[in-house]
Design a binder for these strands. Structure first.
Lengths: 95, 95
DNA sequence: ATATTTGGTTTATATTATAAACTACTTTAC
DNA sequence: GTAAAGTAGTTTATAATATAAACCAAATAT
């Protein structure tokens, strides 16, 4: 009846991040922070978790002398997102 | 861009319970436990939280000598569910 | 030069979710 | 009639999460 929801994605911030990365494919830390309205600390922690889960890759560079963190979604991340979307729909309609 | 998700409903078990109660209007503890595949302890705790939030009402009776817990959704619960459904959709499509 | 800003990370704390243990009673089997 | 197993939960303890606060290193502005 109810499909299990991937706990990695069942988190407001992590879901928002993946939702963004699914379309843009690549985004800066600051862009994600802006779009999700998260605090830096929270975003930093949640990005690490998405990375540990293999859902995103994180690349650290420098841009105009400042550190720059770039995030990209992986095929596993895309897949997990699509699964999640499919599964949560079982909760959203009346039974 | 992303709407905030009611933390009371952004929980797999509580969302499942509300999803059920939205259609059936009234259900026993044991029925909810069966349908959601939850442990008794977890269900008990989450029902209390839904009650504290004013999303459900809980009535305790006896049926055939056994204790019976009946749950009903409130107008506030219905409203919160509909809001939640609307809001989570902002996460589920590509941006 | 020192104060502030940028772009983060780490650590500590509060909140949640889950599981395990327990309560209270009933039914069934001996 | 009493011991064992089952019903219907609640409470408590533990693990997992989210959030905030503090911190770091370097750059820029005053």
């Amino acid at each position: 009846m109810f499909k299990d929801l991937d706990p990695i994605l069942h988190s407001q911030l992590r879901l928002a991040v993946i939702s963004l990365l699914v379309s843009v494919k690549e985004a800066e830390f600051t862009y994600l922070k802006e779009q999700t309205d998260a605090t830096s600390g929270n975003l930093s922690v949640q990005l690490q978790k998405l990375k540990e889960a293999g859902y995103i890759e994180i690349e650290k560079k420098f841009k105009d002398n400042y550190p720059q963190t770039i995030c990209k979604i992986t095929p596993g991340g895309i897949n997990a997102f699509e699964e999640y979307v499919k599964n949560i729909k079982s909760y959203l309609t009346k039974h």
